[in-house]
Design a binder for these strands. Structure first.
Lengths: 224, 224
DNA sequence: GCATGAAACCTACGGTGTAGGAATATGCGG
DNA sequence: CCGCATATTCCTACACCGTAGGTTTCATGC
């Protein structure tokens, strides 16, 4: 409480100070500003100018709060409208994922790691499935393909968000340090490819792998 | 310790009670038995029948202990000998990854999430790079392809280890529950594919996605 | 034999999640 | 208008966490 008199008991004015929404959105902001580990019940309460235990009237516990953050991030995904062109739609879908992950780099591991059965969490699956079904895949194959694409997207984005923003090349010192590390490994193929391993254009890398999958899927589509 | 007289000061008998190795291996066992979160400095010390602070003579702190666990798991990977057949070698390599991840399901997220620059952590990269270089890829393309394959492998295994062992079909109740959840989502494509989404043969799924990547890479190899 | 330093223990601090209870305002039945 | 149930808040308390700093014991080198 900012003034010496802490408000005790139910607040005046009809409206409650706290709501589940306010807590979760503040938790999301906090996570992006200070990192996920900084999101503690007490720290979050401090930001909301509230006692820690008050949170528990609107949130079950910390673990489910993290799930709620996950869902909130997921609602931020802008599902693109399908164009009917298979490869374009897959690309657009994957990029929509990528955008939301990069918008919330600290929370991305949550989204990429926890699989929730909720509507929000299934919406992206629905989107990918739609693209594949519309392209002509039978339901069972579409599920396989969806899982493959999502596995790649998740693996890629996990690496990207945990690598930090400047792996691309502008951070010259970092590149130099990584080069030294790679060369020190004394692994012949690693040393040989060290210049390529030390830098990474994530966008380009993402598209490269995605294209591999798309090409193979298109081929599978032509020969059923 | 267990008898009323706690040993204090340096232990008698020349040999120290604790070593870094003993601590890390016990931490690994503990993680697999009780989960990663259960691996606390105090809990680990209890298992080793030792005071919590004694651990700090051999381990920097909890965070680097987790890194050491990661490395220990990574040393358990059995890198297969190359046969020269591209697709076989990629498969064998990916399966070697999968085996070590499934052998340590609780620690797998560590291995799949943390990217360390150590020799141990680079050895798998070296292995994949070798296969691709031997197949004829130039260094730069081999790096792209390596990243794509690893992204898929990481994404797949993360899902597999966090899904629990019995997603395959033997757990009938679980399948039924998942089916209900999927149908409740009311997403048309999800509902349509619900029977396929509710079960998952991880091995098969893994090979499916891997084959997609391999097919595309083989094609890229033929048309340079 | 004595100093040195390693390896163990103990104490203590500030942090965590959360159970249980006390206080206070609102809204409702009378 | 009063009284009461209920919702919402704060407070206290507990057990646990990571770890900084100090103390005790022992093996070893001079």
């Amino acid at each position: 409480m900012v003034d010496g008199k802490p408000r005790r008991g139910r607040p005046a004015g009809g409206k409650p100070v706290l709501t589940s929404e306010r807590i979760v959105t503040e938790a999301l902001v906090m996570a992006e500003q200070e990192g996920l580990d900084a999101v503690t019940m007490r720290g979050l309460a401090r930001r909301l100018d509230v006692d820690a235990m008050s949170l528990y009237h609107h949130v079950d516990n910390r673990e489910t709060l993290l799930n709620q953050i996950t869902e909130l991030v997921l609602t931020g995904i802008e599902l693109p409208a399908g164009t009917g062109v298979f490869r374009d739609d897959v690309h657009a879908m994957a990029q929509a994922f990528r955008r939301v992950a990069l918008r919330h780099p600290h929370c991305a591991p949550l989204v990429l790691t926890r699989q929730l059965g909720s509507f929000t969490a299934l919406a992206p699956v629905e989107a990918v499935l739609s693209i594949l079904r519309d392209a002509g895949f039978p339901a069972a194959s579409a599920v396989h393909a969806t899982r493959s694409v999502l596995a790649f997207v998740i693996g890629s984005l996990l690496r990207e968000v945990s690598a930090g923003p400047t792996f691309s090349g502008d951070d010259l010192g970092g590149v130099e340090r990584r080069l030294a590390e790679l060369r020190a490994s004394d692994l012949p193929r690693v040393v040989e490819a060290a210049p390529d391993l030390a830098v990474c254009d994530h966008q380009e890398e993402f598209e490269f792998g995605l294209d591999l999958l798309i090409v193979a899927l298109e081929r599978q589509l032509r020969r059923p």
